[in-house]
Simulated assay, not measured.
Amino acid sequence: MSAQASPLPDQGGSARVDSWIWSVRLTRTRSAAAAACRAGHVRVNGERAKPAQPVKPGDEVRLFHEGRERIVIVQRTLTKRVGAPVAAECLIDKSPPPPTRVERAATGLRDRGAGRPTKRERRDTDALRGR
């Protein structure tokens, strides 16, 4: 019998935050996860995370990616990318639901090169967003 290494390590371990985000399929590549960390789009337990920061079970990871915020709780640490069903077991997703098509279309977009918005345009945009 040969002992094969399981992609799911024991509960007590830790993993790099960029590697874990990539392993549970929140980003497409590990370099994209590391870039998100460097840009300040990743927070672990409320603090900005560097790519090499360790995460352990019970940590809250917040990731702002592709226009939406993902809030997940680490259930199990991973260092290798796994399939979607296994990845779903490694986190608890507490993210708000993604915006509907109508909500996405309602956001005011300015024409490219239109310059800085005027005070009236800013008020209209804020009213549209519900601020």
Rank of each mutant, 00 (worst) to 15 (best):
A52S: 15
L109C: 09
A114S: 15
G113M: 08
L78K: 00
G58E: 12
V55C: 11
I71Q: 09
D10M: 00
R104F: 08
R76P: 06
G46W: 07
A33H: 01
F64S: 14
K94C: 13
M1I: 00
A33I: 00
G58A: 13
G108L: 13
T79G: 01
A35R: 08
R48G: 05
R120I: 12
L109M: 12
A87P: 01
P85S: 11
V82I: 13
R123Y: 06
P99T: 02
A127P: 00
A15N: 04
L109A: 08
T125W: 02
G40P: 02
A114W: 05
R38Y: 09
K80S: 11
S2K: 14
G130D: 10
Q75P: 01
V44C: 11
R129K: 14
T100A: 13
R110C: 09
H65W: 12
E89H: 09
C90N: 07
T118K: 07
G115L: 01
Q11Y: 14
R48I: 07
P85H: 08
V82H: 06
L78Y: 05
T100V: 06
R76L: 12
T77G: 10
R104T: 11
V24T: 04
A5D: 08
V86Y: 03
D10P: 05
H41W: 05
V82D: 04
G83L: 01
G13S: 09
V82E: 10
R68W: 09
S14I: 02
A127R: 12
A36E: 01
A49I: 00
R81N: 11
R16A: 04
E47D: 09
R81V: 10
T125Q: 06
L78F: 07
E66V: 08
A88L: 04
R48T: 05
